[in-house]
Design a protein around this nucleic acid. Structure first.
Lengths: 339, 339
DNA sequence: GGCAGAATGTAAAACGGTCCACAGCTCTCC
DNA sequence: GGAGAGCTGTGGACCGTTTTACATTCTGCC
């Protein structure tokens, strides 16, 4: 912490060895005697030496993994925690480049990381086109979280969102619901199979409905509370209104709850609602939303493991789909019930 | 993006000049002719050259500002957005080191940043002791957000939380409330005046109550929904129960709302509730919490400005207190009202 | 035309590590 | 006792950029 910084030369002098020797000790290189290791370690502790990472980075290893994510999404905190956990014993530090909505900001943040010679990248729910990601993966170890479809030059970790949607439909159908609507959002320019969670959920919903011999009803708005409100009004003003709504995200579900309230519908007696993402709000007693839990931490730690393998030289792509779980809370009940 | 990376030498060769010349163009150095600038710029664009930041960092400037924060707090996203905005025209990039609760993780994240030669640090609500922060500020330009009291070797930006508490009390007293309880959390090891927002709020609350000739009633639990629930039970089971509660944070306020609901109290008719922080949930129609808005983005952009001044050489400490505002929503009403 | 001084460009040394190639030493084995 | 192998440790080049000190060219003016 004190200026000027202690360098490897200072340590070497204090320990009476060469800088190269200190470097070897630090990188547990081949050919260091116990005696020397001891001397060097002592000098390091004595002087409070910490290697200058930028200098290290110039010779290949930057000891840094870059995470690019929109930190406004509550799940990101959990994912990052998982990443850190997965990197704990590895001498790799996690740095986060914050992005907002704009795709060009994503690019800029990725470049920020690459300019700093990060050893690998973890991108959370990137909206960049498939080809750009593939090109990126060719030049640097890359793992994608939450992007479906996989790719040739990067690893992918995601929740099995289609299966999650299946869980939701199964739960609702099991409660006797027949008219189950789904609210989703436009896919942007992304095309199947390289898509974000909402599209996979939509597909899973449609498939599950067909499996139960039910008619799918997909309403497309946007993923805000407002969007959920508007979507719910559509679903509930049909000639044969929905008795259950599977919302594409919890935030959307909150809008659905508000619409129901305004229309005088009781939840869950008159309308059942299922969300997705299990954001912190959903667990609040006032909300108590039945939802699909995305296992954010597990996504993070799995990504970290894959990235390390990739940094260590693996080239063939790996895809991990994590089984989601349904968290049953207070917004779902049997159809036509009045408990 | 393509391997191997384009270096300054490649650009120099392509433009038919020396590497030094390219460097000068990049750093708008003294003594570059228009012709040379033109040639170099063209070569840079041609080759898609981007300077290697780690190499730059070795010669002093790392073009990086480090933000250390707990990304689980919703406000952090807004603050970071403000920081980025304040740094937009500066060639400085923002990198974020995520931390959790543990103070030693804060230290580790700060070291992570220093090891990478960042030009300055912005710490959001750090819990490190005052002396550690002061020492830190002596070795690197540092700005603290959300830490009261200021210091000799760093700048401070914070909401005027005492004034915010004053707004809350004034609002409630103006509605006719006399028994206004406040729920706060322990101060940890921090001592006045170098404290986190909650302590400043508590002080502001006590002062404002006295100003209105009312008796302060401070309940100390912890800053979770559970804590709020427990605190509210205490306040509402007194012989003379509170008619209004000023919660230390919105999350706490959510617990208060649950307690009120369970006790059969209607909000706002039987009990008024004010929170603090204006987290996204509070704006939801179902919650509609009256709260104090912390102007996160303004905190961020102000910090960025101060940090730049400090990087440019300013040494004397500056403290900025940002006036908070009260957002009146649906959880407050006149005392004894039955509107 | 010659000269001072300004303007423009370059060579080379740094920054703080890593790592290759090699030197010196000890040990083993014949 | 000497050759060769195996260990330890070191010198120095190198990574990509900035910056200082200096060389060269140009300009204006007497």
């Amino acid at each position: 912490m004190n200026d000027p910084r202690v360098t490897i030369r200072d340590v070497a002098r204090a320990a009476g060895v060469s800088p190269a020797a200190v470097s070897k000790v630090l990188n547990d290189g081949y050919g260091v005697s116990a005696a020397m290791r001891e001397k060097v370690m002592h000098a390091i502790a004595e002087l409070g030496y910490r290697p200058n990472v930028t200098a290290r980075a110039m010779r290949g290893r930057s000891h840094t993994v870059g995470v690019v994510a929109d930190i406004r999404a509550p799940i990101v905190a959990q994912v990052v925690e998982g990443v850190q956990e997965g990197l704990r014993d590895s001498s790799l530090d996690v740095l986060l480049a914050p992005v907002g909505d704009a795709p060009e900001r994503q690019r800029a943040s990725i470049d920020t990381m690459i300019n700093r010679n990060v050893e690998g990248l973890i991108l959370i729910a990137p909206t960049l086109p498939y080809t750009a990601l593939n090109t990126l993966g060719q030049s640097i170890p890359t793992v994608l979280i939450g992007r479906h479809g996989g790719g040739r030059h990067f690893d992918s970790v995601m929740d099995d969102d289609a299966a999650g949607a299946g869980l939701a439909v199964e739960h609702l159908a099991g409660l006797g619901h027949r008219r189950i609507s789904h609210i989703t959002m436009p896919t942007g320019r992304l095309r199947r199979p390289s898509v974000l969670p909402q599209t996979a959920r939509e597909d899973g919903y449609v498939a599950a409905m067909r499996d139960h011999a039910l008619e799918p009803d997909v309403i497309t708005t946007d993923f805000t509370e407002e969007g959920g409100y508007a979507g719910a009004l559509t679903a509930l003003r049909r000639r044969e209104p929905a008795t259950a709504i599977f919302a594409g995200t919890d935030t959307v579900a909150l809008g659905v709850l508000r619409a129901a309230h305004e229309l005088g519908l009781r939840v869950p007696q008159d309308l059942s609602v299922v969300g997705a993402d299990n954001i912190p709000v959903s667990a609040l007693p006032q909300i108590s939303l039945t939802t699909i839990d995305p296992a954010g931490k597990l996504n993070g730690s799995t990504s970290a493991r894959l990235l390390r393998e990739r940094i260590d030289g693996r080239l063939n792509p790996v895809t991990y789909a994590i089984a989601p779980s349904l968290v049953v809370r207070g917004t779902t009940a049997p159809s036509g019930s009045d408990r």
